[in-house]
Design a protein around this nucleic acid. Structure first.
Lengths: 187, 187
DNA sequence: GTGTGCATGTAAGGAGTTACATGATTGC
DNA sequence: GCAATCATGTAACTCCTTACATGCACAC
């Protein structure tokens, strides 16, 4: 029976499986890879590393990189086991989608048509900016990972990009439906 | 200058704009409409209604429905104004997507190919079940709303359905790529 | 010498879930 | 009589974000 891993522990252990890392390194790795579907802040990462150390899932690694006050961590065998157990666990995985722009659209019938169109255009522009950020900040690193023997990290990056593009395209379609005077909405 | 609306206040005020409601009614409305992109639990709704009452954005409505101990609320003019200000506000809307299945896939290169395929099939099945629930529990109500003069509620329901179907299809595509021995992953 | 990046942490607060406790009404 | 649904609320807990505080190293 494995001890329960907190949400942050999952991404921390996973990142350490890719090699020894400091808390700062883990944060950087999250920002350039899983950010889109799983974030983590310093305020979570550092306390979590300490908890994992005290429960024996990670340990301090000898600091071989010159710089002082680097506290690099690595997985212990117990940590590797806990990570693998989580990966193949069959409890329903956590899923959360929370989207204020969509909530506003839901109440959009309380706005004027012009206000709705403005909202739709603005949301689409934000999504396209997001997509561009995935393209420049995440995809290139994922391609490296793929070449380095981790093809699935590229798949998840592509998912993030394609999902964002799909949403932007959905808003473009909505704008067309809203502007088309022919559109008898099909019930 | 408008007072800041908490996240839960936004959906509560919006639901009250559609008519007088008890906390219980609001919860039911959320479950059958916005649940997919904006949830709310009793533990949030009841305290929020009291806060909104004490700040004058909602008020108790005369109980015309026989049953005792129903505390139906309605918007005050100040509440209508606050709601409209939020709807047309131009601060960046809250967006959160958190997906444990995708995080596992990101670390999937630590699993065996069989374990990855199992995970992919299971996640796809869960998404298809979600889509079915949107079809049976949310879409029919949204069609009613559309006929009742709220076409955008139907648009958002369709978004929820189509997004879920798109994700399920993405997993189907991934499974094909993983099983195809020809697949030289394009970097 | 100064700004940028590397690096580690803490404290306070906001948001949300879950479990619990209670009771009325309605249909079978 | 009993189960399901309607109905209101509280308490404890988890999770996460933000802001703050500190200091080193290195390049320009």
């Amino acid at each position: 029976m494995q001890p329960h891993l907190t949400p942050t522990a999952r991404v921390v252990l996973g990142m350490l499986a890719h090699g020894r890392r400091t808390g700062y390194d883990i944060k950087r790795a999250v920002e350039t890879s899983t950010r889109f579907f799983w974030g983590a802040s310093f305020g979570q990462i550092y306390p979590e590393l300490e908890r994992l150390r005290s429960s024996g899932l990670v340990e301090l690694a000898a600091d071989d990189e010159g710089a002082v006050s680097r506290r690099a961590h690595r997985l212990t065998p117990a940590g590797q086991l806990a990570l693998h157990c989580w990966l193949v666990d069959d409890v329903e995985p956590h899923f959360q989608y929370r989207d204020e722009a969509m909530l506003r659209l839901f109440f959009g019938d309380l706005m004027t048509p012009d206000e709705v169109i403005t909202h739709v255009r603005r949301t689409r522009a934000l999504l396209e900016a997001d997509a561009e950020r995935v393209r420049t900040e995440i995809l290139p690193r994922a391609r490296e990972g793929s070449r380095a023997g981790r093809p699935l990290t590229l798949e998840t990056a592509r998912f993030g990009l394609e999902l964002t593009e799909w949403m932007a395209a959905w808003y473009a379609g909505l704008e067309r439906r809203l502007l088309d005077p022919e559109s008898e909405l099909p019930y």
